[in-house]
């Protein structure tokens, strides 16, 4: 537990239809005793859930750029990395899976992942349509993420 006494969970959400489960994920996490939750969203993920149904702070790419005005200002993805005890990416879409497995960091969420302290748990929950799932690169990329020490919560 960190100095605040809470267990801080950062939820990453990406642009798969399963992102519509975000409000349920956040609600159920908040029911765990001593858990504090924040969300990092990609722009495409916003299409699938209603912001008003999510009871916690949601960060997006805009916040990263608005926070930083001059050299002494904090960098949001570093602040979030420091804040979180655990990162869970639910859902992880095919595009973001591809980016993370290659080290690409072109938005707030992928920057948090790239800067992640690997002594802390990172869980990922892949979700994509069956045709994309069956592409041979999916298994390669998931295996790469596991090599990085990330933990898969397999899809059904």
């Amino acid at each position: 537990l960190n100095s605040s006494g809470s267990f801080r969970v950062l939820v990453g959400v990406t642009g798969s239809v399963a992102a519509l489960k975000l409000p349920a994920v956040v609600d159920q996490l908040l029911q765990l005793p001593g858990v504090d939750v924040r969300v990092v969203t990609t722009e495409h993920a916003k299409h699938f859930y209603n912001h008003a149904e999510v009871a916690v702070k949601i960060y997006s790419d805009k916040d990263e750029w608005e926070l930083w005005k001059q050299r002494t200002d904090p960098v949001l993805h570093i602040e979030l990395r420091r804040w979180a005890d655990l990162l869970v990416i639910a859902p992880l879409d095919a595009n973001t899976l591809g980016k993370i497995s290659n080290g690409i960091c072109d938005n707030l969420l992928t920057c948090v992942v790239r800067a992640w302290d690997t002594s802390r748990p990172l869980l990922f929950c892949p979700a994509m349509n069956t045709a994309m799932w069956l592409h041979p690169i999916t298994a390669q990329q998931i295996s790469r993420l596991k090599e990085f020490g990330y933990m898969e919560v397999p899809c059904i």
Partner: peptide, 21 residues
Amino acid sequence: GAMAEVSTIISVVEQHLHKSK
């Protein structure tokens, strides 16, 4: 390719919460 059940995700997070104590 449907995401894991929300309850499964929560229970994995919960395991890590207990480990951290």
